[in-house]
Write a protein that binds this DNA or RNA. Structure first.
Length: 574
RNA sequence: GGGCGUGUGGCCUAGCCUGGAUAAGGCACCGGCCUUCUAAGUCGGUAACCGCGGGUUCGAAUCCCGCCACGUCCGCCA
């Protein structure tokens, strides 16, 4: 257990002890008061009706009975609140010790012996990733990192469409459209080269019935396991998928497993599911196709029919998705999906079907709103997009300009390039993750690439500053004496470092990756204030100097660990 | 028409789940701080009827109802 956990627990226990004498049995929930009013607060308002006294009197009465201990330094009553000021010397030593001992794993929670499958990205391999959906891999990968830190065994999965209409369109295009008819893409990556085939094929499909027929023939052959067709499809999308993987790798994302949809066709599990679904009370037939009537499950709208089998006997995306989820439920204890908000209905339908099939584990879903452009929605089909690769390039380029502006005289070009890469990629990830997923974001270059204020350079800079100080004292031993760190900025920074494990716990339990970004900003800010107030290297007092050095080192570790949770590299200089 | 989500200073965001003490930050704007560990920093200032209207409560940005705006979905697409 981490020091601050221990502290909170003991304050709660102390309160509990006093309060049970009054037959108050509600759970004690401590709050964090506004600045300068203490470290923890207990509001007494809800006790008023029980006590038949004013909250202020109650607070006074209870506060008088609180006995001070290792953690509780002073107790104050203000308004209807009991404010606790903790004994920082009790917190400082174990916190710093814990950071120095655990280093890269400081903040990590104890092992849970539970397996989590986090599905994210799962983009159709018919073109490059675009910014509209860029939140998906970033949120997904951040959750993967957070769950790992929270003690879970995690596997990330990309559900790969290798059997549906979208890849069939791409494959038809690749095989039937001449290269000269495709608009030339400047980017040499295969996903950029191939997307034109998909776009033109889409147009032809919509205007030419024979093409539409050819494509649906491909889908049918796929479902029947026609070997040659499968090979053809695979050859068409493989280079595109490879391009997608490369893009992900550029932003520090590696997905453990790619699960092809076809898996569940060929192992007959989709067939079994169809059979079971047909037996349910909610199944109906319409023109030889089958659907579940979702009306009694609270699904409303123009159409409450959830089709799972076409009239030609082929399956649909959602049908295969049900099979996939059943399979996942067999292989994990917790399932997490990261999906665009356009999947809300489908996800609900799949959930209902899974319930009908008595699936053991249902997925927790994190939905995100699309990133839009000032002119409207992005679309691969219509080619109205900003591609992720272009955004990455632009981020790095702009970061390079910023580095050059500041460090041309001190660093070599390759050093500056390296820093630009770290800052550029970090900027991209940070800007997307710092906003809660369900909030709409309008993509504007000037905002995305603003390098000031609450942005990643601020945090990375704080890390680089810490490294710079430490770099000058490599040979020194960092002795540590908690009692000498008494400056308000030092105390504030230590408390901030102590909070990190609680932040991880909260971010994990509530699927809120953006809280890590907030924490990082606050930590960097606390460090900058310390940096301003407490000179480290120039201090004459040896004990103070080395204790501060240790605090700098501890901050460096926490910033590094938290940045790592966001998949962002911590530069040693900037 | 219906479902789901979002609405917080000029702009962007946190807080909302679990109601509480002067609504917290950033950008922009104005004014200070580099002979001292990288000023991508720091200090101060201007700026908010928390979309609108009701309700619950001792107390509402937070919970409930209605309305408005935006996003998204309501395909034998994925």
């Amino acid at each position: 257990m981490y020091p601050l956990d221990q502290c909170k627990k003991e304050i709660t226990a102390e309160l509990q002890k006093v309060v049970t004498k009054y037959h108050y049995n509600e759970e004690i929930r401590l709050e964090i008061p506004p600045e300068d009013m203490g470290d923890f607060a207990f509001p007494c308002f809800s006790l008023a009706p029980l006590f038949k006294k004013s909250p202020i009197e109650i607070a006074k009465e209870i506060a008088a009975k609180i006995s001070k201990n290792k953690w509780i330094k002073t107790v104050e009553v203000k308004g209807g609140y009991i404010n606790f000021f903790i004994n920082t010397t009790s917190l400082t030593t174990p916190t710093i010790q814990s950071i120095l001992d655990k280093k890269d794993t400081y903040g990590y929670l104890k092992k849970k012996k539970k397996k989590v499958i986090i599905e994210h990205t799962s983009a159709n391999p018919n073109g490059p990733l675009h910014v509209g959906r860029a939140r998906n891999p970033i949120i997904g990968d951040t959750l993967v990192r957070i769950f790992k830190a929270a003690g879970y065994a995690v596997e990330s999965q990309f559900y790969l469409d290798d059997i549906g209409k979208q890849v069939a369109i791409l494959a038809w295009g690749v095989n039937n459209i001449r290269h000269e008819c495709i608009p030339i893409s400047e980017n040499k990556k295969a996903d950029h080269q191939y997307v034109g085939f998909y776009q033109i094929a889409n147009e032809r499909m919509n205007s030419d019935e024979t093409v539409a027929q050819n494509i649906s023939d491909i889908v049918k052959k796929l479902e029947h396991g026609d070997y040659k067709t499968i090979e053809m499809i695979h050859a068409s999308y493989a280079p595109v998928l490879d391009g997608i993987k490369q893009s992900l790798l550029r932003i520090n994302i590696n997905i453990d497993t790619y699960i092809p949809e076809s898996t569940f066709m060929y192992d007959k599990s989709v067939e079994r599911i169809i059979k079971k679904l047909k037996q349910t009370l909610y199944c109906h037939e319409q023109d030889d196709a089958f659907y579940l009537d979702m009306e009694s499950f609270g699904i409303q709208g123009r159409n409450t029919k959830f089709f799972f089998l076409r009239n030609d006997g082929t399956t649909l995306y959602a049908t295969r998705d049900i099979a996939y989820h059943q399979w996942k439920a067999e292989h994990a204890d917790i399932l997490v999906n990261v999906l665009g908000e356009d999947h809300k209905l489908e996800s609900k339908q799949v959930r209902i079907a899974l319930e009908l099939l008595q699936t053991k584990i249902l997925p927790q879903v994190v939905f995100y709103a699309f990133v839009s452009l000032p002119g409207g929605k992005m679309s691969t089909r219509r080619g109205r997009v900003v591609y992720l690769d272009d955004l990455i390039d632009e981020c790095i380029e702009r970061a390079y300009e910023e580095v050059k502006k500041r460090r041309t005289n001190e660093l070599t070009d390759s050093q500056m390039r390296k820093i630009a890469e770290i800052v550029g990629i970090g900027s991209l990830r940070y800007n997307i993750i710092k906003v809660q997923p369900e909030k709409d974001i309008m993509f504007k270059w000037e905002d995305a690439l603003n390098f000031e204020g609450n942005a990643v350079p601020f945090i990375q800079y704080a890390h680089a500053r810490a490294c710079s100080i430490l770099g000058k004292t490599k040979t020194e031993k960092h002795e540590f004496e908690a009692a000498v760190l008494t400056h308000a900025s030092e105390i504030a920074l230590i408390k901030q470092l102590a909070r990190f494990p609680l932040i991880i716990d909260d971010a994990c339990n509530n699927f809120k990756p953006h809280t890590i970004a907030n924490y990082l900003y606050e930590t960097a800010s606390a460090f900058n204030q310390f940096y301003r107030d407490c000179p480290v290297l120039s201090d004459e007092n040896k004990e103070l100097r080395s204790s501060r050095l240790t605090l700098v080192d501890a901050t460096r570790i926490v910033l590094h660990n938290a940045l790592d949770l966001l998949g962002i590299t911590s530069p040693e200089e900037m």
